[in-house]
Design a protein around this nucleic acid. Sequence first.
DNA 1: GACTTTAGTATCGTGCGGATACTAATTGCA
DNA 2: TGCAATTAGTATCCGCACGATACTAAAGTC
Lengths: 215, 215
Amino acid sequence: MPDRFATAIDLICFTVVGGALAVLGAGAGRGGRSALPWRLLGAGEGLDTVAARLARTTLGRAPGWRTQLGASSDTSRHPSLAPLSVGYVAVVPAGTDAPPGHLWHRLPAAGAFGTRQQRGMVAAIATLRDRMDVEPIAFRLLPAAFTLGELQALYELLLGRRLHKASFRRALQGAFLVEPLEEWRTEGRGRPAQLYRYAPRRQRGSRPVRFALLA
Amino acid sequence: MPDRFATAIDLICFTVVGGALAVLGAGAGRGGRSALPWRLLGAGEGLDTVAARLARTTLGRAPGWRTQLGASSDTSRHPSLAPLSVGYVAVVPAGTDAPPGHLWHRLPAAGAFGTRQQRGMVAAIATLRDRMDVEPIAFRLLPAAFTLGELQALYELLLGRRLHKASFRRALQGAFLVEPLEEWRTEGRGRPAQLYRYAPRRQRGSRPVRFALLA
DNA sequence: GACTTTAGTATCGTGCGGATACTAATTGCA
DNA sequence: TGCAATTAGTATCCGCACGATACTAAAGTC
């Protein structure tokens, strides 16, 4: 008879709030400790299925993107007391309200979470950064219509460094990922910015561009 | 009382045999089915600890590199009957003998493994390919001393495409990853190739080179 | 000794990415 | 109403990394 373990699914859900990444915390009032949303795995349930349901019921909507981070054995204590946990990252567009009983914690959320969960967040952001060149993570963190300035700012946020405007746009154009709308948005002063939408057309001559390499 | 699950650790261990990747299978005789080495997680054990021990006891030595792939809930049946499994990838240098009761299966090992395990191998190779630019995976798949031709052939094997010799060497030089030995190896006909060893010196001016981008 | 084979290097051209500077369109203010 | 300031977006130039090609070097083979 082998050992058996309770298994928790953790959700690390990011959005953008005021130009910074923010992570969804459950049950925190003012200044108090927060925790990642989680759910125990039930018999006969698949990991991805449970993670998808956890995200959907927590947020009230399906996240724009989601993937598994990996499994960890919690020598330090998981809130559920489960010795095994499987982490999932998800993203929702900027502007998504935190569901009732939850809060967006802008990073670095030094005080709000335990150190174990903060380590998970670091790994989660690394995953976002690693995969954003090949998956539409940045676009899922933005509303359907966005300006190229917002898109670049998001890339800079995830990559942790400034990008060159002309190079960014050249690369973006070469990748055939976005489509301009006949719509402009004026943001205070300055020339209005044209809005774009994510419309990837993988076509002949669309060379793959690794934005992460741009300066 | 939450549901509890037996949990298996799977080991996907690669080496190079005759210019092709090979994966370690347990218990296969001639032509028979093979299975990945695995071990059930015990109470109070950490995932990484168990994976390291599984690799060490299976191979008789610590692998040159190892990392977690992720967790999966086995709707199709795991050999251990555990409903949960956590996969690990590892590599050992070319020339490592298969331990007693095990065999190296050169890829594509179409017949030897079940489809579930073959999917894991595909994911494992994708992980190797994704991380080989930032972790010394290729060097752990080679003996301590190797020729640049062998190194390039290994990169080509993992990336699945030919690389340009001069570009590869230029990039390698710029990365300060290897050090020439005062030793040459003659391989049948042709000029002998100088041997090198992995000796990374992260120093001023060692620009990071993404070999995966080379043609 | 000529040919073949493999290792390794040099040279050149092209194209991408970064710097810089420019145009465009709006707000704020005198 | 016009000018400065601000932000969006583009054009031009240039350096350099990469790929192509051709070369040299050192061994085996006939």
